[in-house]
Design a protein around this nucleic acid. Structure first.
Lengths: 156, 156
DNA sequence: CTTGACTCGGACACAATGAGTCCGAGTAGA
DNA sequence: TCTACTCGGACTCATTGTGTCCGAGTCAAG
């Protein structure tokens, strides 16, 4: 049960991009967070493939949000970077061994798989309830000047 | 976000042990589910270390539940096998880089970590709400003779 | 009491996945 | 046209999970 460490970077980048008014290169995002630019690029590519951010190449290119920040949930970012498949996968071991359950009695998933699925749904619902815009507002919060400082640093 | 595959085995074993009235060796549990006995032993050792099952050595030894089945939650088993630490770990990258947030403003976890924590709590709460006894009752359900068949196979 | 066989427990290899890096293709501007 | 800058995918290495093995301990039977 270990989530990819790149999820944290991707979420921070999404929050930063929500404050930018022009494309931001991956290198700049990397030095802002003091992380490896080569590896951060991989996470941004994942976000791009998922359609969350849009990439612009060439001079003055970079990344920008493909949608408004309030239309991108935390779950979107997590699934884009870490994969969308559930953590638990049922291998149907109840249908194996000497006391195997007959297939006609396995039309529904076993109770264990159902329990795991319910927990997974709860987890996803909690992440779907928060958007990048919510995160950005909480980050800035009271000191609104931090917002302008960040925007200034991005354009410089 | 991949959970250890041994969690499924451990949960099935817990359900089986709730039906047994005497210690069951790991080898028997393994052939019942048609899985590697050597690897299943590792999962059972994890459950034993967590105090969920009790091991009896020597002739006619084996594993048995250390507590009543309704006192063991699915979360207990998951944490015992897969570890209890949350999937997301905040590395505090907000305190790094040229625009680092000053430490006096970081008394509380950042919004990203908070969101992840809430989702994690929801996930754990869902798993804590189901006990091994609940699983056993759902498995047997209408056909109660399967219960006696299983118990007979275990003692044979 | 001795013997024996059976059990768990931890220590030991192997494979798969994630972390991290690098260079080439493409593009916008000068 | 040229140059410099950007992304994108391919490559390598470390870490973790998967799977296996043998020795220490223990209970029951003779």
């Amino acid at each position: 049960m270990k989530m990819s460490g790149g999820v944290e970077w991707a979420l921070h980048c999404a929050v930063v991009l929500s404050a930018a008014d022009r494309p931001v290169p991956a290198v700049r995002l990397a030095e802002l967070h003091d992380v490896s630019s080569s590896y951060l690029a991989k996470q941004l590519q994942a976000l791009s493939r998922a359609g969350l951010i849009r990439a612009a190449q060439g001079h003055a290119g970079g990344y920008e949000l493909a949608r408004p920040a309030d239309g991108i949930t935390v779950l979107d970012v997590v699934e884009a970077v870490d994969g969308a498949q559930p953590a638990f996968t049922c291998t149907e071991i109840r249908q194996r061994g000497p006391l195997a359950t007959p297939p006609e009695a396995c039309l529904r998933p076993c109770p264990i798989a159902r329990t795991m699925s319910v927990a997974d749904q709860a987890w996803r619902a909690a992440l779907r309830a928060v958007t990048v815009a919510d995160l950005a507002q909480e980050v800035t919060g009271d000191n609104t000047d931090a917002f302008t400082v960040l925007r200034g640093w991005l354009t410089a």
